[in-house]
Design a protein around this nucleic acid. Sequence first.
DNA 1: TATGGTATGAGACAAATGTCCCGTTTTTTT
DNA 2: AAAAAAACGGGACATTTGTCTCATACCATA
Lengths: 217, 217
Amino acid sequence: MIRTNLAILSFIEQTLTSEEKEDRVFLKGYAPGEHLLMQGQGNKYVFIQKEGISKCYITEANGKEFIIEFLGEGELMGEIEIIRKTKNVTSIAALTPVTSYCITYDFFSKLMTQYPVFNQLLLQALAARVSETSARASYQQIYPAEYTMMKLFSLLANQQVVLPKKDLADYLAVSLRSFNRTIKQLREKRILSPHSFDLYIDGKMMDKLLLEYDQES
Amino acid sequence: MIRTNLAILSFIEQTLTSEEKEDRVFLKGYAPGEHLLMQGQGNKYVFIQKEGISKCYITEANGKEFIIEFLGEGELMGEIEIIRKTKNVTSIAALTPVTSYCITYDFFSKLMTQYPVFNQLLLQALAARVSETSARASYQQIYPAEYTMMKLFSLLANQQVVLPKKDLADYLAVSLRSFNRTIKQLREKRILSPHSFDLYIDGKMMDKLLLEYDQES
DNA sequence: TATGGTATGAGACAAATGTCCCGTTTTTTT
DNA sequence: AAAAAAACGGGACATTTGTCTCATACCATA
């Protein structure tokens, strides 16, 4: 649920030489709340996050936010827009203190076209993004909030970070009220621990509950 | 809403020579209802649709289907799985009679790595897919069915095909009942024409209605 | 330490959506 | 043409989710 891409980070840090990176790749820090990228604007760099957690989100015309994904170590940002030559489709904001590599437009183009290893990593990253985005879109729209929240908590358990509830609600595309309500229900059902997001049940048990909920098309 | 990719189709048909395609690229026909690809299975070919319309969908554990997108002329299928070396994440089924190029695994790999023009087309296709999938996931989850349906109908107007209601409902991830109910409401409000899916209002008017619906975060 | 801002938690009610069901229409198959 | 199958349309009711609102806790910093 917090996406990472260690292979691409390692390519930038280990494979590229200092000479290659000179004037083309540099590190920059962002405080929580600060934006790396703003929806609707153009951007000059492609980013590869080195440390911290950020959120990639879309702001709809009515002001509501939908979080596409949380980004962690090594995640690429802004490459879609450069490949497609469009304005940013999403905004990206730091949630924790973030440091990120900034890669100039020209050098990114060069990496993409003249470095087969990088090209391959890029294809992998894009393909992974397509399938994960699709899988999540499907899952979230088809199951009720109770199940998507259980899934979210099970994923969250593998992380050490604490994300604000509003962001978790935006990730699931439910109102904060629904989010809280469902937490309460899960606690009443003894599925969720009283003061944390720890689940009392495991993946298998979850699948069982899931199937309980109906069987036909 | 029915995605196409004429550039990649033209590459296959015009740019590649017959010798290059020999034994590696061939045409195949599919009757409505027939599958090009099944979720969970491996597949041997990458497909590029030449004619017809198909649906790309995910079947969830409870049997419900979510349609990721409708595919038209030139759309690529199965490339994600080959790039990631995974089983199929989606199923693809013909809705109308479909003819599609089948490209062998090996030749697709070669196209990807040794044909810069194709490589570029592939990057473009993946990038487009990421942004469109994200944009739609956001839009559909954030707005009520009434608005997503208006959007759907406005997109549908540019197509000549008639798609089954069940499929349209699956695309929006709502039940058929909700779909019908909302059609009825839109007709009562004189937004939708009585016996077709033609809207009486245009894009600007839609945006206005959309904004009506709330303004803050 | 006061004070505003933000995160949290939840009651009450309204709106949206799903489930179940039944009857009709259309299409396909025999 | 008859029968079977699939698509369509909608009533009645239950469930889910959102909106509005108020109250409390926590954190920052003036």
